[in-house]
């Protein structure tokens, strides 16, 4: 078989080829609970479907949290990384999805999206911060106790359909959330590859210039905000399905910062970074919490500051920027280990 060129990248096979990273990831993640079940728990394949207690079930729960966070961070990356709008109110979109239903989220997205594209820069950040704070304050107030449960939040939300029931059909929920995440990821990649995506990037780089070129940036910003807020609300709704208790903290500024941290870890504006960052963040948080208890938040804060200072492009961004040099280093290492192929040595000598 010849190496793939640009010409055979059309049609279904071409699509599969271009998306092979996503497909391989999907296959690995679908197989993951089965592998854990067999290797670690020593249970059979059927144990995964029949929802047996064990490592496989626990890790599925953790993975679902990663998927939800990734979906949420992905939508934030579209706003901040791709379009360059610094929003401090993204947690509100998530929380609306978590507290209310998706329809309300749609309505809200349009409502705020009419307001938000009109302001820019620091004013945009402040207005979003304002909206989110109001929402946060209102849902924890005692005035809405009957509906939002004040400080405690929502408890014991019933799953509407069997495949959204995380306690009894966890593997089904795992598959559903994985499918949603990867579907949205592919959709987002398609969006930023499309002409509209180029306009988003041009808004980030220089809004005045894209206005001058004839793009009505208002509508493009509106589009980004609506798409991102619906995605975040979807993540929020999944969060409600997955967690036994939804606390008001999902609407706080700290939760927006979580999204910021995730895409900083992964790489701002890369989309893939949101997925990698969510996995790294959640696992890091889980294990630091287990080992260091209360000090873990301090460690995460320190990691955040160090990331901003020393690794501003995140894991994926740095990987992309240095992939040539990393490949070079890998070749040199292989050479050293095998001691062979001196004639194709690195260009340095």
């Amino acid at each position: 078989m010849t190496a793939p060129t640009m010409t055979d990248r059309t049609g279904l096979t071409g699509w599969l080829q271009r998306r092979r990273g996503v497909l391989i990831t999907a296959a690995l993640l679908v197989a993951f609970p089965f592998i854990i079940s067999i290797v670690v728990d020593g249970q059979g394949l059927a144990a995964v479907w029949s929802n047996e207690q064990g490592n496989a079930r626990f890790l599925q729960g953790l993975a679902i949290e990663v998927f939800i966070l990734a979906l949420y961070a992905l939508s934030y990356d579209l706003i901040l990384g791709v379009t360059g709008l610094l929003s401090f109110g993204h947690a509100m979109f998530f929380a609306v999805g978590a507290y209310v239903v998706l329809i309300a989220a749609l309505l809200q997205a349009f409502l705020f999206a009419i307001v938000l594209p009109r302001v820019k820069g620091i004013t945009f950040a402040l207005v979003t911060l304002g909206f989110a704070s109001v929402f946060w304050i209102v849902i924890q107030s005692s005035d809405l106790q009957e509906w939002a449960g004040a400080e405690i939040g929502l408890q014991g939300v019933e799953a509407p359909v069997w495949f959204l029931d995380t306690t009894n059909h966890r593997f089904a929920f795992y598959l559903v959330s994985l499918a949603i995440l990867l579907g949205v990821f592919v959709l987002y990649q398609r969006i930023i590859d499309a002409p509209a995506g180029k306009v988003f990037a041009s808004i980030r780089e220089n809004e005045d210039r894209s206005l001058m070129l004839g793009y009505n940036t208002f509508w493009f910003k509106l589009m980004v905000l609506v798409v991102a807020s619906i995605t975040a609300a979807l993540a929020g709704a999944m969060h409600t399905m997955h967690q036994p208790i939804v606390t008001p903290n999902v609407a706080s500024l700290a939760f927006t910062v979580t999204a910021l941290l995730i895409i900083l870890i992964g790489g701002v504006g890369t989309l893939t970074g949101a997925l990698v960052g969510a996995a790294v963040y959640r696992l890091l948080q889980f294990y630091l919490d287990r080992w260091y208890g209360a000090a873990s938040e301090l460690l995460i804060g320190l990691a955040y500051v160090l990331l901003v200072l020393y690794l501003p492009y995140g894991i994926v961004g740095t990987w992309r920027a240095r992939s040539l040099r990393i490949k070079e280093g890998r070749d040199r290492l292989l050479q050293m280990v095998t001691g062979a192929s001196k004639e194709t040595s690195s260009p340095e000598e």
């Binding site: 009109r118 304002g130 304050i137 209102v138 005692s142 005035d143």
Partner: peptide, 23 residues
């Protein structure tokens, strides 16, 4: 009767309105 916890919300709403009218 607004409860004391919603009080900060009023100030924030003031900010949002002022910012939208006078950036």
């Amino acid at each position: 009767k607004p409860s004391p916890t919603v009080v900060p919300a009023a100030a924030i709403l003031l900010m949002v309105v002022v910012l939208l009218v006078l950036p």
